[in-house]
Design a protein around this nucleic acid. Structure first.
Lengths: 197, 197
DNA sequence: TGAGCAAGCGGAACCGCGTTCCGTTAACCA
DNA sequence: TGGTTAACGGAACGCGGTTCCGCTTGCTCA
């Protein structure tokens, strides 16, 4: 379950040590560049930070989306895992849903440009789009379903559309003190509730 | 009230006929290019459509935002004017608000890339941002205020943040059949309502 | 009316950025 | 240790926005 390289994957002959090292350096450099300049940090900057040539970036991460996914994979997985956990520990499904959405929003607004990249229809971001959707839509759907079954929210909400809407509301947050994405997402979530009480 | 050039503005000596003609051609060409390729249509394409050189674009419209504003000015003005009109003719302030927001959303989703440009923090779009805000925030504030006074919605909603949120929800609409911006905006507006009934 | 002037024009040139390509380097294995 | 080749680096290319300057042409005034 643990060692992917030595055990199971004999088809891939084992990577060279310098290739592994460079891949790790690139991940670190990209993470730093993303913090400093957002997820559209220039390719050359990332390469320079890592001390490698630009060609090396493209060999390891053919599209920018591959690099972004690699950098944020851990956090996305954690977010996905938090869904069922919240459902188990929260008082109501709606509280779990609200809490989980809060996590997602916190993640997006602290990654400059990530929300924008997620909504981009450029072909290069297809992988990014697909990864986030694959991991998070099922979790969101589960939370929505639980809350709908409990009669707390309307039952005609599509998880994909909701996630996309939330992502959209996070676009540009952090650049504009007059705009509070969390607040707007809160209103959107309030709009999900059934009218009683 | 009508002739700006001949009457009031004597400081500007009167433009040459070819300059006026080119400006109009550029507006037409830009409008066509925006429909065909979105508001980020390449400058060279717009120039080619208008049959002018790229330098001529920059002389008339120093930034892309100036061009966008010029192309859509009429529609934005119409949208701004519709606010008070709806307030006067609708049954309730909330109905007026919902109707007006519907107009705004229809406008945004039919202009490819406009919502994106509106949220962009690039310096070149500062003019665009400022123009939309100047014209629409007061209208939105008036509608919000009327609805809040009537006790239909919460009274702690900022017109600027709401418009920005709505604009955000319209980003990418039209490229994705699974995402319905109007629906999401509807949920957001539902979230404005006070809890009773 | 036609000569002089400057407003206005066109597009070459420049810059920054993403992406590709290939000659060179150095890990790995026998 | 020497051969093989994965992997590297960075020059080169394409594209789009922006600037700049020599030429054109509409307008004015004698």
């Amino acid at each position: 379950m643990a060692d992917i390289d030595s055990g199971s994957a004999q088809a891939a002959p084992r990577k060279r040590a310098d290739a592994l090292r460079n891949q790790q350096r690139l991940l670190d450099a990209a993470a730093a560049a993303f913090v400093a300049a957002g997820v559209d940090a220039p390719v050359r900057d990332i390469a320079a930070r890592a001390g490698v040539g630009v060609g090396t970036i493209y060999r390891h991460f053919p599209t920018r989306a591959d690099l972004i996914v690699a950098v944020y994979r851990h956090q996305v997985e954690a977010c996905a895992a938090a869904g069922p956990a919240l459902l188990a520990t929260s008082g109501t499904p709606h509280a779990a849903l609200a809490g989980w959405i809060g996590l997602f929003v916190d993640f997006l607004v602290t990654k400059h440009g990530l929300a924008e990249a997620l909504q981009s229809d450029a072909a290069a971001f297809e992988t990014l789009h697909a990864y986030f959707l694959d991991r998070l839509v099922p979790v969101c759907a589960q939370l929505l379903d639980a809350a709908a079954t409990a009669g707390e929210i309307r039952s005609d909400i599509d998880a994909y559309a909701l996630l996309r809407g939330i992502g959209n509301l996070c676009v540009g947050a952090g650049n504009d003190p007059r705009y509070d994405a969390r607040r707007m997402v809160g209103l959107l979530v309030a709009g999900l509730r059934l009218d009683h009480d």
